[in-house]
C-alpha cells in the first residue's frame, strides 16, 4: 500500500447513505466521485478510473451487477467492493460472482470498512463473516455428483479459513489460529473468490433461491 490515498468512487442510490459513508471515510481516502444510478455510474467510473468502487448491490436499473460487468469489460483493473444493506444471498453472491473483490454489510464499522478498502485496492479479497457463510453454504449444498472439477469444491484448508472468518476472525487472527502466515490466508481467500467467479452460475442461483426460502 502506497502513501498516496486510495481513490474511491461511491455508487449508491440512497443519498443519505452516500453522504454518511463519505463523511466517515473522506479523511482517510480520496473520494473521486459518486453516482446514484447505473448509467451515470458506468460513465463516471470510466472517466475517473478510481482504485476502488464502493458498490451498492441493490439498485434500480440492473443493480450493481450491471455496473460491474460494464466497467470490468473496459477497465479490468478497477476493484469493486460490494457494500450493501441487503444480506439476501441472491444479491450478494450475484455481485461477488460478477467480479466484486469482496462484500461488507452497511452496518460495518468505519475502521473495518477502511481496512476492507485498503485490502481490495491491494488486490486482496474481503470476506465478511456473512459472505464466508454464504460461500460455505453454497459449496456444501452443491451435490457431489455435480462436482466435476476441483473448481467446484473447496479444499479442507479453504473451508477452515472460511469457517473462522464466518466466526468473525480477522485474517491475522485466522492465521494465528491455524498456525499459518497471514499471506497464506490471503491466498486461500483469493482462491475461494476465483472459484466463486468460475463456478456455474446456475448452480449458485439455484442455491440462493433455496437459501432464500429458509
Amino acid at each position: 500500500m502506497s502513501e498516496a490515498q486510495v481513490r474511491v468512487f461511491i455508487v449508491d442510490d440512497h443519498h443519505l447513505f452516500r453522504s454518511g459513508v463519505r463523511r466517515e471515510i473522506e479523511d482517510s481516502v480520496d473520494i473521486v466521485g459518486e453516482a446514484s444510478e447505473v448509467e451515470p455510474a458506468i460513465e463516471m467510473i470510466r472517466e475517473r478510473v478510481p482504485d476502488v468502487v464502493l458498490l451498492d448491490v441493490h439498485m434500480p436499473g440492473g443493480g450493481g451487477r450491471a455496473v460491474l460487468e460494464a466497467v470490468l469489460k473496459t477497465h479490468p483493473d478497477i476493484r469493486f467492493l460490494a457494500l450493501s444493506v441487503s444480506d439476501n444471498p441472491e444479491d450478494v453472491v450475484d455481485v461477488v460472482q460478477a467480479g466484486a473483490r469482496g462484500y461488507v454489510t452497511k452496518t460495518v464499522f468505519t475502521e473495518e470498512l477502511l481496512d476492507a478498502i485498503d485490502r481490495v485496492s491491494a488486490g486482496d479479497a474481503v470476506f465478511s463473516p456473512r459472505l464466508a457463510g454464504f460461500v460455505l453454504d453454497a459449496f456444501s449444498s452443491v451435490k457431489v455428483a455435480d462436482v466435476d472439477t476441483d473448481l467446484d469444491s473447496l479444499s479442507d484448508r479453504e473451508r477452515e479459513v472460511l469457517r473462522l472468518i464466518a466466526l468473525g476472525y480477522t485474517y491475522k487472527e485466522t492465521a494465528n489460529a491455524l498456525h499459518i502466515a497471514p499471506k497464506t490466508v490471503e491466498s486461500h481467500v483469493s482462491s475461494v473468490l476465483r472459484k466463486l467467479h468460475l463456478t456455474n452460475r446456475h448452480q449458485l442461483a439455484r442455491w440462493a433461491e433455496q437459501r432464500r426460502l429458509v
Partner: peptide, 8 residues
C-alpha cells in the same frame, strides 16, 4: 449478534 448459518 452476527449469525451465520451453513446448511439447515
Amino acid at each position: 449478534i452476527e449469525l451465520v448459518t451453513i446448511g439447515n
